[in-house]
Amino acid sequence: MIRDPKDLKRYNASERANHWLIGISFILLALSGLAFFHPAFFPLTQFFGGPVWARILHPYIGVVMALAFLIIFFRFKHLNKMTPADKEWLAKAKNMVDGNDHDMPEQGKYNGGQKVMFWALAVCMLLMTVSGLLIWRAWFGFDITLVRLGAVVHAAAGAVMIGLIMVHVYAAIWVKGTIRAMWYGTVTRAWAKQHHRGWYRQVTGK
């Protein structure tokens, strides 16, 4: 849906579908994974048809997410190269969090925080995939020390990744006008000018 023909296109349909595939698989993985992570979350297995189903399904959903993530990683990698302006943005990130974004340096399609998030999630996804395969007993039987290491890494990187995604989702909720970029792919020009002025200039030529 195009709300205003002058809205700026930020994501095409395929990128959005790719992102949602990751989002859905992540939510399912986090819910089922947390169930094994700590007994307090064990009742979450009921969302999957019981604990045995949660145990069976989780790794397959993991493989789907890993593949979808790999694709998006190569799609967005070149947009997430760190620049001096990003470093400056990061140094001032506290002001941003305080709700005072007036003297933030001009940002391209992604700001420094988003780029840090991109690379942190990529590292987590790599760790989760490798360690997840190591502990997948239905298919593999690796050396016991590797399996133990895998269990530690999978649990630790999983907790970090869930925390990162909470921040990622919250940032999208907090910055009004952002979530629509993931629904219909467009953002308003005012949004772009305020948050990503470099990108705004680039796409509007202003």
């Binding site: 979350f41 305080d98 909470m166 910055v175």
Partner: peptide, 30 residues
């Protein structure tokens, strides 16, 4: 103990986000 601690940390991130929103307010386009 790392697991209960990680669980508390995640709860902290969730609550922290909520209180950030209600204390600082949303980041609207000016």
């Amino acid at each position: 103990v790392t697991k209960p601690l990680a669980t508390l940390a995640l709860a902290g991130v969730a609550l922290g986000s909520l209180f950030h929103y209600v204390t600082k307010g949303p980041n609207e386009v000016s």
